[in-house]
Design a protein around this nucleic acid. Sequence first.
RNA 1: GGGGCUGUAGCUCAGCCGGAUAGAGCGACGGUUUCCUAAACCGUAGGUCGUGGGUUCGAGUCCCGCCAGCCCCGCCA
Length: 597
Amino acid sequence: MLRIAHRLDLQLRAAMDRAFPEQAAAARQASQPLDPQLAPASKPEFGDFQANGALALAKPLKQAPRQIATAIVAQLQADPAFTDLCLEPQIAGPGFINLTVRPERLAAEVSARLGDQRLGVPAVEQAAPVVVDFSSPNIAKEMHVGHLRSTIIGDSLARVLEFRGHPVLRLNHVGDWGTQFGMLITHLKQVAPDALDTADAVDLGDLVAFYREAKKRFDDDEAFQTTSREEVVKLQGGDPVSLKAWGLLCDQSRREFQKIYDRLDIRLNERGESFYNPFLPAVIDGLKDAELLVTDDGAQCVFLEGVQGKDGKPLPVIVQKSDGGFNYATTDLAAIRYRFGAAPDGDDARRVIYVTDAGQANHFAGVFQVAQRAGWIPEGARLEHVPFGLVQGEDGKKLKTRAGDTVRLRDLLDEAVERAETDLRSRLNEEERSESEEFIQHVAGTVGLAAVKYADLSQNRITNYQFSFDRMLALQGNTAPYLLYAVVRIAGIARKGGDLEVLTGQLQFSEPQEWALVRELLKFDAVIAEVEEELLPNRLCSYLFELSQVFNRFYDQVPVLKADAEALPSRLALCRLTADTLKSGLGLLGIPTLDRM
RNA sequence: GGGGCUGUAGCUCAGCCGGAUAGAGCGACGGUUUCCUAAACCGUAGGUCGUGGGUUCGAGUCCCGCCAGCCCCGCCA
């Protein structure tokens, strides 16, 4: 309906110009043209759209809002293009103008979407690269629940942007550099030197244990700390022994990460922190040239504007430590320059999106400010932190295992699939259905992972997220199983003889449930546009849930296969477009669908 | 101390550029199956939108104060 909304907006503006020529001209001169405030109708009984602009004009025009609305409507009715599109507008309440699109126009919109891969979503015209930076686990650690949201949300946002036609660079900014490596390598040199020059000498689980030990020593032992720092400097200086050890550790971790990504069907290009190593000195030079750099306590800093620390002094972003080493702020700045920079040493991006937890908001705000002041953000480019809240257990505290450890992502996914399998088996039992082992594994795997993804995505990402297997796997409510079931129902119609591919001429609808479904289906383009702009996947989830509800109502109350000969093709067309929209929408959430479950 | 986020029904949460009587789901209670998968559908009950001011024709939404919870605050990422 975006095209129709756009057309209506223009028609409304023209009508306002004709109704109030002097005020319209004056408003345009003040570069605040009269706004019809066109919005989707807040309730179905108000039609398809509402224009609230008359209310705002009451004061400047010194007229009653309903009188203003009447004048605008009179002008609209004089416009043949408008009367061709809409029924007679209704003025309601204090002065709302309610607009209802002609049924035949809605039916024509549905027709146009049948068989359209894009489902009415326009492709972007100017396609500049978009960077989505997400997931970002640390080398030598296992992926855990802390990586869940970034990975799932980032992937979904990338999919939506790709669907709109943007060239998307999915970057995995893995933690493969810095102090942590100094600690690990120093520790391994002492306790497991094999791991540093032989591939797979220890497995990843051991490596994680070594890492934990190293971290403990680092925190407790000053001498170890110093050696570790020296090790980092060696690594950053390109010492061959350190580099080889580092390479082996990275390979090993990378393979483990890939297993998770394969399982979740997530595509990512690894470009870790180390990638930006050669560009770090230029960051310092650049900041020096921009006269932003200040030496403080031996460290190179940029002091932030508008952000005060404990003592009321401006807060610094440290870009070079007193020992000469660089840190994450330096890397992030180098990454910003690279991503906005021109090829070959740059990505030429116009939008860069970071999907990381909300706890890093201060860090990014600081880094973005420095980049801005250094002039590294091109005119019109967008640099956005997409924050999300913590994953909490049902007790409202940070999610932990019963033993109090961090939950491994692998275990979390396993449990979701296991629970889905248990549910499925007991259901099959109850219904006295018999299915192959292959069917059970496939359905349980799909439903389990879909549930994990959907539960996360369906929540506004800003707030903390309460993780609950029971809720996400529930068969009713705003859950993946409920949505998947709607798709299964349509597949059932196709199996039972409904030819969804049949092409019909004129679509015709008679039942309110059909019209409700038509109107819901036509909202898809606006929802995608909104997610692209706001980067909130939960908006897409809400839409798909509502679409499923409207479809289930239709399915329950209106016969499809047993419909009259005249109604049948149109109803099959609705089923087809619903299935396509649900599959496409779920696909943008990274969730595959099933024909039977 | 400074900064950020959050506070909406018993629970988990939506709420779009400020717009009409604040919405879902779960849970509770009641109903629906000779018919395309009842994993569904229909209905009932449930609200001082943390709180006090302000702006506005109109505030859950914007501004200011306060309260509560979570997170961050110099050489980890």
